[in-house]
Write a protein that binds this DNA or RNA. Structure first.
Length: 524
RNA sequence: GGCCCCGUCGUCUAGAGGCCUAGGACACAGGCCUUUCACGCCUGCAACACGGGUUCGAAUCCCGUCGGGGUCACCA
């Protein structure tokens, strides 16, 4: 049997982190078994512009490398893949249901149904529709319609027996048919409902494995009924636990950002992203700067590999120690029977840890293009960088090493890309570094030496500074800290000798001189 | 509330009757390295929800309790 899985987003304008996780598992499973992954668009009942609301979702999936074999943009043998274009299929299914006696026209008003439901609740018994407005013949229909009633089509659900389902992640699950309602499949206006559409499409697309979020588990009986009534093939089901809020078991939701911000780790994540977006002038309104959407991670410079790796490990594991996987390894190793049943809460700190690991394996040449756009958007690098610019960026990236965790972190080091005049000096750092009386004197002496350092590179500079320190009988910190502040305006940064080498002799010396002048004109 | 699902360190998880005085990772604390920061290294803290069974033996099987979540639409 060919494995065919599908992800069926509805066009909401953004890609939710929990949604991608589901898509990822579907994709991984299909790839693992050499099958197909299908993207279907659940756009029934969609008022807004579908293409517009779909674009960010497709973009997000592509960014993560989750490619689809059939669906929007690529088409496929069972097109169309938009539900809004398949309405005739659903209507045909309704006719078949009616013809087979598995559904009936019903003329009860929503209020009448509601009243029955209330009554059942009051008597503490399971609500079962009386079917008193059921119409099985054209004559019945005509009679109700003459009363001005509008008809819907309801499923004639079984009222006894049970459904036994073998779910690929949850194992055996049982439902009593008596608890199921006569669900509506076609509205009074003739349009069809999701569950019907869903089942028809899965059949039409030959979906072999329905892998979806746990919230659909309770919907499964009615879908199974539909499948059986229509004579379709029953797919295998796998209900995934959902991604939960940080530190809780509640489903992660994009609307509760305010609440999540009270979580320290989450607040830190947003703050980190905010800083980067601010620097590149792409600040977003708070509702769009939302780490619940994958777009956030792309815009601050996370690696898709890291997100994929982290998300896969959220609910799935390979063994008791391996955590870092490449995409290929994931495809090779993924299986549904190692998917956990309990919801897993999203941990921003751990995501960052995965990000670091994936950054660490990238050579400098691969990090440079990642980092370039951030420098350009921040106005620190020309749109058409020359060879020299590339060299400098590469040098900064190399020297920064693990300090650049996400691509946007390169903006922590603007000192290498601004002129002396533009250099921002942190007053605290300045005060601390030059508070010692000997600092100015040492800086002046070192400036003399600097002129003669040849070649002006890391090892030579280091050697000369150590000699200087020995000759002066000082501790290395006494000179290193003032120097760093003079060169970068900050107390923290790259290694001092890297800083010298990247800045070059000219800039280094001018920044030291500038600092000396500033101390003289504006003592501490 | 009915139905369904779930319940191992703060978090992600390993664990399919003895390998468990419960392992790994992130986080946290302390230390080391060091030129600041990041990285790295070492050490520590820390969990089988509870109660009954079954068994020579249970985190693992059964029952119950409690707790958490999902779902109950002419939404998807």
């Amino acid at each position: 049997m060919t494995v065919r899985t599908r992800f069926a987003p509805s066009p909401t304008g953004y890609l939710h982190i929990g949604g991608v996780r589901t898509a990822l598992f579907c994709w991984l499973f299909a790839r693992r078994h050499g099958g197909q992954f299908i993207l279907r668009i659940d756009d029934t009942d969609q008022q807004r512009n579908v293409e517009e609301a779909l674009a960010p979702i497709l973009h997000g999936l592509k960014w993560l490398g989750i490619d689809w074999d059939e669906g929007p943009e690529v088409g496929g043998p069972y097109a169309p893949y938009y539900q809004s274009q398949r309405l005739d299929r659903y209507r045909a299914a309704v006719e078949k249901l009616l013809a087979g006696g598995h559904a009936y026209h019903d003329y009860a008003t929503p209020e009448e149904i509601q009243a029955e439901r209330k009554a059942a609740e009051a008597e503490k018994r399971i609500f079962t529709y009386s079917r008193r407005f059921l119409a099985e013949t054209p004559a019945d229909c005509a009679r109700f319609e003459a009363e001005g009633r509008k008809g819907v089509v309801r499923l004639k659900m079984p009222r006894e027996g049970k459904l036994v389902l073998d779910d690929l992640v949850r194992g055996r699950v049982e439902f009593n048919w008596a608890n199921e309602q006569d669900h509506v499949v076609q509205r009074a206006d003739g349009s069809c409902l999701y569950h019907l559409a869903n089942v028809v499409d899965d059949e039409d697309f030959h979906i072999s494995h329905v892998i979806r979020a746990e919230e659909h588990l309770s919907n499964t009986p009615r879908q199974v009924f539909l499948i059986q009534a229509l004579g379709y093939n029953l797919p295998q089901y796998a209900h995934l636990p959902f991604v939960a809020e940080p530190g809780s078991k509640n489903k992660l939701s994009k609307r509760k950002l305010d609440k999540y911000l009270k979580n320290k780790d989450f607040a830190q994540l947003v703050e980190h992203g905010n800083k980067i977006l601010h620097a590149i002038g792409e600040e977003k309104p708070p509702e769009l700067l939302n780490p619940v959407m994958v777009d956030f991670y792309e815009s601050v410079g996370y690696l898709p590999e890291a997100i994929v790796n982290y998300l896969t490990l959220l609910g799935w594991s390979w063994d008791d120690k391996t955590e870092q996987f490449t995409r290929e390894e994931l495809i090779e190793k993924f299986s549904l029977d190692r998917v956990n049943k309990a919801p897993a809460s999203f941990d921003p700190k751990k995501l960052l840890a995965f990000q670091l690991r994936h950054m660490q394996v990238l050579p400098v040449e691969q990090k440079v293009p990642l980092v370039l756009p951030y420098l350009q958007k921040a106005g620190l690098l020309s749109e058409q960088p020359n060879k020299l610019d590339f060299g400098k960026v590469a040098a900064v990236v190399r020297a920064a090493g693990d300090r650049i965790k996400v691509a946007g972190d390169v903006l922590d080091f603007p000192e290498f890309f601004v002129s002396d005049e533009q250099l921002v000096v942190d007053p605290d750092a300045r005060g601390k570094a030059f508070g010692k009386p000997e600092a100015v004197d040492l800086l002046k002496k070192w400036l003399e030496i600097l002129q003669t350092v040849k070649p002006f590179d890391d090892p030579t500079l280091e050697k000369r500074l150590h000699e200087f320190v020995a000759a002066e009988g000082i501790k290395i910190g006494q000179i290193i800290h003032p120097l760093r502040v003079a060169l970068t305006g900050k107390a923290v940064g790259l290694g001092l000798f890297d800083t010298f080498a990247i800045l070059g002799r000219l800039v280094s010396m001018s920044r030291i001189k500038r600092t000396l002048r500033s101390i003289e004109s504006m003592p501490l």
